[in-house]
Every structure is written in structure tokens, then in C-alpha cells.
């Protein structure tokens, strides 16, 4: 079987407790190359906990996260040594936080924010790093004249686009996003969504995107997980789940928004 016939990520019965309470319980799914999976559910339903477990930042209490590496077959990411896991996080996975402050270094320039990620995977040639940074600023629609400015001086939408550039410059295979449009104005959100849609298609990225906004997943996600109280209550093709929801909770969620 070639790598194309294999899921990139295979998640098996993932469970994580905080105290006696399961923040995420018995979650299983496969993520395929080029596939965008949305995770929706109300606040506190366990979306961020799940994303943290998937992205190697929070060890689950039970279950496995199996990753199809580029050359070394399938690994359980929590069986790896810390250094190996760190390397994969830099080379293969991206992580876009809701708050750009958590994903950017606010004290260094926009160009350095992008260049740093490249240097972390071994790039050394200053001219090349700067060229790559410039190219990525252009792709995320940030004016080149801002390359030496610090992200502190940027608007929320620009910061978020910079965070995306910082993640994508190393050509990751999977990008995890936690409410990437969360704190933004509606018009700024729309622009960011356009950009994400384009990049995902062009780069054939696999994405897990957590959001409570059904319009976001309608636009971006191929398939959905609906979470409630730590459990997946419904899963399937995005438009089917939104247009013909089966579970009472999903029906409530869909009927509570004006239009998605």
C-alpha cells in the first residue's frame, strides 16, 4: 500500500481526564491527506482538549494518535522520545492558536517570525530566509513594507495571517487550528477564510479546525465531528451533518443559528 492509501493520522479511542471528569472521551477518526476536518460544539465540549491531544501537546489518559511519517512508517506520537516529537512538531505539523499572541513572538519582526520557523528546521542562508519570509508575507496579503515591523503593531487580522504564514513556511503536512477566526470582526474573518480556503487547496493540506462557528466549517471543512460534553455525538460529511442533522444536540446547534 502506498502512503496515499493510508490515513495521515489515525486516532483511536482518545480519552483525557481533568480530575474525575473526562474533557474528551473515546474519540476515534482517520484523517486523510488533503482532508479538512471541522470539530464543532459549544464552549467546554472538549474541542481544545482534543486538539491538544492530537497535536502532541497533551498526553491522553487512554487511546493512541498514530501518525504516518514521511519515511519511517506509522508512529504513535506519544511513544516517541521528546526530541523526536519536537522535531515532528517543527517539520510536519503546524499549530494556529486562537490568540495570535500564543503563536507569534510579539517582540521580534514579522520577517523574523517567519524566518525563525525556517531556521528551526535547519535553514541558515540569510538571503534565502528573507526571500521566503517576503514571499509568505505576500501570500498572506501583508504589505512587504511591514517586514521589519513587530506584530504588536499589526491589526488582529494581520496578526492571524502572520501566524498562518509562520506555520506554513516550513510546508507542514497537518495544520491544527483552534478557533482561528475567533476574535476577529466579521469582515476580517471573511478575508481570512478566503485565504485559508485557497491555501488548503493549493498546498493539499490536512487540517483539523476547531470552531464554534458553523459557517466556518461549511466553507472550509470536508467533514465534521460534533462534540458535546467530551464525546463525539455525530460525525460525517459537512453538508450532510448541517443540512440533515441526526442527533438531537446537532439539530439544536444547527437550528440555533440563523443561517450556516
Amino acid at each position: 500500500m502506498s502512503a496515499v492509501d493510508q490515513p495521515l493520522l489515525r486516532v483511536e479511542s482518545l480519552t483525557r481526564y481533568f480530575g474525575a471528569r473526562a474533557a474528551c472521551r473515546d474519540v476515534s477518526f482517520d484523517l486523510w491527506p488533503g482532508e479538512v476536518m471541522g470539530v464543532v460544539g459549544e464552549s467546554g465540549s472538549g474541542k481544545t482538549t482534543l486538539l491538544n491531544c492530537l497535536s502532541a501537546r497533551l498526553r491522553p489518559d487512554a487511546g493512541r494518535v498514530l501518525y504516518q511519517t514521511r519515511h519511517e512508517g506509522v508512529v504513535d506520537i506519544y511513544d516517541l522520545r521528546e526530541a523526536e516529537r519536537r522535531l515532528l512538531m517543527r517539520t510536519d505539523w503546524g499549530l494556529v492558536h486562537q490568540n495570535p499572541r500564543d503563536g507569534l513572538r510579539m517582540g521580534v519582526s514579522a520577517g523574523a517570525n517567519i524566518g525563525e520557523r525556517l531556521m528551526a528546521v535547519g535553514a541558515r542562508h540569510y538571503g534565502e530566509i528573507r526571500d521566503a519570509a517576503s514571499a509568505w508575507l505576500g501570500r498572506v496579503e501583508i504589505d512587504l513594507s511591514r517586514i521589519d515591523d513587530r506584530p504588536r503593531a499589526f491589526s488582529g487580522g494581520m496578526q492571524q495571517r502572520l501566524q498562518i504564514a509562520r506555520n506554513l513556511v516550513t510546508a507542514p503536512r497537518i495544520v491544527f487550528m483552534d478557533e482561528p477566526t475567533g476574535g476577529l470582526d466579521v469582515s476580517v474573518q471573511a478575508r481570512l477564510l478566503d485565504l485559508l480556503r485557497e491555501l488548503v487547496r493549493e498546498l493539499h493540506l490536512s487540517v483539523v479546525i476547531v470552531t464554534h462557528d458553523l459557517a466556518v466549517v461549511r466553507l472550509l471543512a470536508h467533514r465534521l465531528l460534533v462534540m458535546r460534553q467530551g464525546e463525539v455525538v455525530e460525525a460525517g460529511l459537512t453538508d450532510q451533518v448541517l443540512d440533515d442533522p441526526q442527533h438531537p444536540y446537532t439539530q439544536l446547534l444547527v437550528s440555533s443559528v440563523l443561517q450556516a
Binding site: 460525517g236 460529511l237 453538508d239 450532510q240 443540512d243 440533515d244 441526526q246
Partner: peptide, 9 residues
């Protein structure tokens, strides 16, 4: 029609 397209389950 929607069922044929798998838009409805």
C-alpha cells in the same frame, strides 16, 4: 435528489 447526492442521510 438530496439523498442521491448524499446531502441528506
Amino acid at each position: 435528489l438530496r439523498a442521491l447526492y448524499a446531502n441528506y442521510a
